[in-house]
Design a protein around this nucleic acid. Structure first.
Lengths: 345, 345
DNA sequence: TTGTAAGCGTTATCAG
DNA sequence: CTGATAACGCTTACAA
């Protein structure tokens, strides 16, 4: 490990003061062109690299922010990160991604770990327990923004999709195609805490589903609300609960999947029962995540405006970092219908 | 922005010297229990948080490493990151993830940006051009490890899968099931640089395919090697090249997809031609990435030992950081067959 | 056991 | 235009 080259090395090699070197390298106005040139070439020769740490220490900012992403496979939030990354870059900030990666204590523990990271703030994607994370943030005095629609408690400025309206639009799309027996495939959260928190969005999307049916004058058939246990296992083949309903002879001509991820096993369940998708049963999802185009048929779904959400998260966070006081409230974004083969007539 | 609480604040509030505070908080042996307690409680009251920067500056290390991940959707490398994260934690290192996220200049540019990040080294996943990245690393004097099998040039210690052997095993699995007309679905890289670099693994897997056939005494039918243009668009419905082959009447009873990602459109192509999977045509992929369980039928594939690869990448990098000289060579890991419905008889 | 003081590598403030 | 010099907040000899 060769000793690092510092400003002092450069200054003595160039025969100037260390302040001059700093100015020359930092594009300050008050340096003669000649000196600047000389210093630059000497610095290059010596392989001088400024120390990020010293600079940060002196100037009091790391110019870096963090994003914490949940554990259950890299999902819909990937485009959020991408946009956040660009937005941060534009403001001269580095963006670091921290996966929860099965850390004991979950999101809150990861936040706590950020005490040892040179970061000025954090965007937490999917926060099962805003209260716990809030405590962690307070302990280490770190500004945070939530991108999340899984928890009722709002202890941060929180960015999420307009779930109720989105679900309503999804179901209205099915109705417009003449579907009348529309099942709602939901996740049953059980007692233990999950990545889906208390599942606020489940309730919201359910309400949207009911609204669409009621508005169309279709009575809600409660036997079409199907709750699937253990919804987090992506590798499962079929949904036994849906299968059981079909076995009982429940008539279904469309399925609204609460999340795109639930669609893959749903398609397999239907096919195994001899039903064709979309001919016999149409399918709509929610999220427009990567899985939507991988499954067959490609899934019609409600897209969340991920790029905008990511950009806005960064904007809010930077404002917080600059000292602005922000309201602890939800900021909701409109979803849009993406039509694909699973609802094609 | 309240002024930050420093050691000095704590020391004066607790009525001791700043060194004592530092020792008390840092679990040093030479502090009386009483003092330690008092200092601790004062620090807590004042909300003292040590400055990562000052600490790093003083002790000369950031204790953080980086991973650069490619751009094309979060794919197979997600478990690599997860394992790397744990391994780094175990050694007291923070791990930061940096997506390429469409940055102009690609991977090399991201590396260059690391000059402004307090990181001691970088693991680059998927490095289309090892030469360019090498230059960037040299410029900013950053140790790097590659996790990659896309480039022939080896300018870093490089971790990859044993592609040839894996491909051979995949095809042997098909042969063992009685398949004889086995197509190889490949990606055509074209002229512009892509995430798949010069596609070393394409060649290696192709060789494995040939070996398996030859070993079984099956003549390689060159018309069964199908190259697909523009393979990076995950949302495409079908592979026109495969479709054209079927149209021409080429007989196929199995398809070896060079990468799992190619399987989803392959299944759709086959189904659209009235072929059943796996009854008429069996399918094998490579990578065992998330997509493998999402498509229908779930895909038999060759799994790379991601966790081991991630752990080993961290191990190598930390050794490099500690000053050890490492060979610039490939470290190859064995793949294993994961049997799923796409080859079930 | 505790306190004093010397850096770590920058940048910014002042004089020259 | 340039050069000393003082922070930034911490750790660690060295002294007491």
């Amino acid at each position: 490990m060769a000793r690092r080259v510092t400003l002092i090395d450069v200054s003595s090699a160039a025969g100037v003061g260390i302040a001059t070197v700093s100015r020359a390298l930092g594009d300050h106005p008050d340096v003669s062109e000649a000196t600047r040139e000389r210093v630059r070439s000497v610095a290059r020769e010596l392989g001088y690299r400024p120390s990020v740490t010293a600079r940060a220490l002196r100037s009091g900012g790391y110019h870096a922010i963090s994003v914490i992403v949940p554990d259950a496979g890299w999902g819909w939030w990937e485009p959020v990160i991408r946009a956040a990354f660009r937005a941060a870059s534009d403001e001269g900030y580095q963006l670091m991604v921290h996966p929860v990666a099965g850390i004991d204590g979950g999101t809150a523990a990861v936040v706590e770990g950020l005490a040892n990271v040179p970061t000025e703030g954090v965007i937490v994607i999917s926060m099962p327990d805003q209260d716990a994370v809030r405590d962690a943030c307070d302990r280490i005095a770190l500004p945070a923004i939530a991108v999340d629609d899984t928890s009722r408690a709002v202890r941060f400025p929180t960015i999420s999709a307009r779930n109720r309206e989105g679900a309503r639009a999804a179901v209205e799309h099915l109705i417009a195609q003449g579907r009348r027996s529309i099942a709602l495939l939901r996740a049953e959260l059980g007692d233990s805490p999950t990545d889906w928190g208390d599942g606020l969005f489940i309730d919201e999307r359910t309400i949207g589903y009911r609204e669409a049916l009621e508005a169309a004058g279709i009575a809600v058939d409660e036997s079409l609300l199907i709750d699937c246990a253990d919804p987090f296992d992506e590798s499962r083949e079929i949904w036994p609960e849906l299968d059981a309903a079909l076995e009982r002879g429940v008539h279904i001509d469309a399925v609204f999947c609460l999340a795109d991820l639930m669609a893959a096993p749903a398609v397999r369940t239907l096919r195994a029962r001899g039903l064709r998708v979309p001919d016999d049963v149409a399918l709509v999802g929610f999220d427009d995540e990567r899985a939507a185009v991988l499954i067959d048929p490609q899934l019609t779904t409600m897209r969340q405006p991920y790029a905008e959400m990511g950009r806005f998260a960064v904007e809010l966070l930077l404002r917080r970092i600059q000292g602005e006081q922000l309201e602890e409230r939800r900021h909701e974004f409109d979803t849009s219908l993406v039509e694909r083969a699973s609802t094609r007539r």
